[in-house]
Design a protein around this nucleic acid. Structure first.
Lengths: 162, 162
DNA sequence: CTCGAAACGCTATATCATAACATTTAATTG
DNA sequence: CAATTAAATGTTATGATATAGCGTTTCGAG
């Protein structure tokens, strides 16, 4: 029973993905404007490419889709900017990137990554977050950044049901 | 107030680290024997090198410490074995490796990583784990592997106190 | 002792990422 | 609006991480 209203950002159900891209670009423009950050054509283009789907994207794949002749620093710099502004998250366990569906509010991403179809679902689990912080505090540890990535099978690929 | 009895595996307090290494090697030997897995001299040596401290270790640093002339596949294969048997964990956010202090029981690691001194503290937070699983279930997602890595400052480096 | 599987050595190459410096573009300000 | 300067981008080179593929050695099973 797929349910578009559950807490997931997105599943692989058919949807108007052009809308996802538009939303992401619009949100990015607004956020950058508000902060005085420059969403240059290059950065905008990279963001658009990252949002080609709801899957993780590799830096060199982006590179290949930019005008021929683009060099690695070009794409890495754009990604650095996008990550710094929370428009894109880096998935450490994949060395890949994914668009952030809720860039308006600063947050660490927590991800469900389907190893079968590649879908990346960013979940919003504040209770998880606070448990992690609390748990760290017990050890006298001051958290600054967290990586939470769960690999497995999404619902569409036969996760809990089929 | 460092306290050796808190839930952390280890802090940077002075301790008999030779004992840590011995324990790890003994545990590894027993586990491998029980499973019919071969803890060869090379694998044992790599495990020992990983346990040089409670910090994350890079594959190429290990390589440099092996007999001159060792090639990358040598160390990566040893690490693959150690990781597969839960004797070592890979830290995805660092592309580095750390010895597992509790290899007897299969588990996913959850780590507090001090960006100041490099200390890696593997915590055991089953409640965190089950929350993650539960949260995944809501999305119909079947978890198979998780990466939980928190970066920040450990107590000794001025995390919660000094 | 022989055989077959596992481990290891080795070469080459793929993949991921950044340092350093030159050039261009854009915002600032006089 | 021209001069100045800071930010962004282009470019070359290289560093860092990781694996494919194949030949050789080691080791346990029969």
């Amino acid at each position: 029973m797929a349910n578009a209203d559950n807490a997931s950002t997105r599943d692989h159900s058919p949807h108007d993905h052009a809308q996802c891209i538009d939303d992401a670009l619009d949100a990015a423009a607004e956020i950058c404007a508000r902060r005085g950050a420059r969403l240059t054509p290059l950065r905008r283009r990279v963001l658009e490419l990252v949002w080609a789907g709801h899957e993780a994207v590799k830096a060199y794949d982006l590179l290949a889709k930019l005008d021929a002749g683009a060099k690695p620093p070009t794409v890495y710099r754009a990604l650095d900017f996008l990550v710094a502004h929370g428009l894109v998250h880096k998935l450490e366990s994949l060395n890949a990137y994914v668009g952030c569906p809720r860039p308006q509010t600063a947050h660490e991403g927590q991800f469900l990554i389907c190893d079968t179809c590649g879908l990346v679902d960013e979940i919003d689990a504040p209770e998880l977050n606070s448990q992690l912080v609390e748990r760290a505090a017990i050890a006298g540890f001051a958290p600054q950044r967290q990586t939470v990535e769960v690999h497995g099978r999404c619902a569409a690929c036969g996760g809990s049901r089929s």
